[in-house]
Design a protein around this nucleic acid. Sequence first.
DNA 1: ACGTTTGGGCCAATCGTTTGGGTAGGATGT
DNA 2: ACATCCTACCCAAACGATTGGCCCAAACGT
Lengths: 341, 341
Amino acid sequence: MGTKRARPVTLRTIADELGLHVSTVSRVLHAKPDESLRAASTTTVERIRRLADELGYQPNPHATSLRTRRSNLVGVLVPRLSDIVLATIYEGIEEAAAEHGLSTFVANTGDQPEAQRTRTNMVIGRRVDGMIFGDAYVDGRFLDEVAERGIPFVLVSRTAGAHPSVTCDDYLGGRLVAEHLLELGHRDVAVVAGEPYASTGIDRTAGLVDRYREAGLSVPADRIAHSRFDVPGGHAATARLLDTPNPPTAVFAVNDFAAIGAIGALRNQGLRAGADVAVVGFNDTPLAAELPVPLTTVRSPMLDMGREGLRLLLRLLEGEPVESRRLRPELIVRASSTPSP
Amino acid sequence: MGTKRARPVTLRTIADELGLHVSTVSRVLHAKPDESLRAASTTTVERIRRLADELGYQPNPHATSLRTRRSNLVGVLVPRLSDIVLATIYEGIEEAAAEHGLSTFVANTGDQPEAQRTRTNMVIGRRVDGMIFGDAYVDGRFLDEVAERGIPFVLVSRTAGAHPSVTCDDYLGGRLVAEHLLELGHRDVAVVAGEPYASTGIDRTAGLVDRYREAGLSVPADRIAHSRFDVPGGHAATARLLDTPNPPTAVFAVNDFAAIGAIGALRNQGLRAGADVAVVGFNDTPLAAELPVPLTTVRSPMLDMGREGLRLLLRLLEGEPVESRRLRPELIVRASSTPSP
DNA sequence: ACGTTTGGGCCAATCGTTTGGGTAGGATGT
DNA sequence: ACATCCTACCCAAACGATTGGCCCAAACGT
């Protein structure tokens, strides 16, 4: 059997063993190369380093954080991790964080203001250095409060007010979809627009509507239905949109999952996605390509969004000036969008 | 503007303000009700409590952890958070953790041993109290090492050796599928079996194969194809299984996503899921019901698995005896499984 | 009347690191 | 020969909370 329940090896362990003072060991093991050289003689440095990794020394992060008032922790709030879009963004965040020696706490809020509040407090209670919100409400009121409290943070996926963010250029994405559908001859399009408080849905919808307007076509309010960003949400919204004497010839769902729900709703009405009604999604999640009728969608750089989000936060923490970024989307045409009859 | 960059309010802040000693304040604010009563007079307790939440006192977790050698942190390792199954399990873990005042670190390992090692060390370096692995290899060698090091942990989703785990009863799930397919008259079934190192795929496959054997039918080795647990994985494996003069009449994919990939592969061969070949998945993810051909699948209690996993770990940390649990799966019959022609 | 409780707190050490100052002894400069 | 400067370390005070003791005064027991 091995050493059950670890004997903690600390700076003192090493210092005593070597007949040195802990401060010397600390400097050698920690300070940047230049300083650690002037902290001790080369032979001493060598002895310390050797013993340290012989004993498998790992600095106690609680002690360090207590002393330095820096935790190297960042808190991440997302609506739902079981939403593949946010999960992927988080993967990007986590990857980048690990590269920079940071660790992340992530929590679900279900887009519920109540939960946003309690989870934020929880995370702040853990003394994170900064936060990343993936669940911003456009109004940004809650975020204003957080800013008041002096917590550095950035947004990913969604924008809100003037808070720094990394998003997909959703407006452009919407325009791309519009152009595609216009080319296919669709003059009557409906939008499954997502939650009314999320900039993603709002901007994607606005992009499409604006481009249609420029083409001389209007998208009336009753062709736009809000919905949750998941399969049942898209299903329900589409069902409502179809409940009319003259159904649209194309449906733009601002999210792939909602699009899958839309396809389900169409099926229930005896309509086939692609053949009878064009369907376009958003995000290009891995399923889109494999659906029985492969889904036309807009690819958004989810992983990069996460990575960039963390980098932005890092710069913010260094006190450097930061600017929001919009990453470029790309239209992916597949079988679900066919010309208007 | 508010108080930029928080003035930290500590026990001392409160103690000084009230002319008390920090130890008194600590006891009042922390100890269980019975102790906190004998720590100070009721009026003092009242004064302390009032001031504490007036100032918004939050204990510094680093100081506490340093002193108590307990971090109230748990580390969670999963193959991929963008896999909805693991993401959902994690949601359960995180929910339960929050209820118990614990925070979680989660990291992706991509099922790569190299990453498992480095991420585990990272997490241990953060001084977690315990860990939860969702990416166990059946052989369990790496986990044996972790156990040697004295780190308390439990497994979720997959089993390995004798390490405590909370899983779905995958073997039973496989049997349920077999029974269903047998009833439908399928004598020739193929299995998209998942990764060979994951107990989930192994047990689900074994359950089906055993049940078929009991029915006097054998499932030969060339009807079983290993695969990744995602859409492309299922697609590729199914393509291989179909590359034979006499294709099977039913396909059991041990994961819904692999099943979606299977449906794609069938489509590429001009075969329709449901109509031409029965397809059954596993997990009952939210998409299953909404697919153009709704997917027959086995519902596994993912959220509960996470919650129970955390509870098990908690018991382990308390030093109580723990036992692995297998949660009950349920067959959900939908349109993708039709009788054999 | 005097020893014993008990109520209500105070003391101080400790957890492991970091960091602004020493300091002793030798080398250097002039 | 004497001031000065390195070199190579050591000292000690934090950071904020916990916890086993200790202590004083009032109340109680007999």
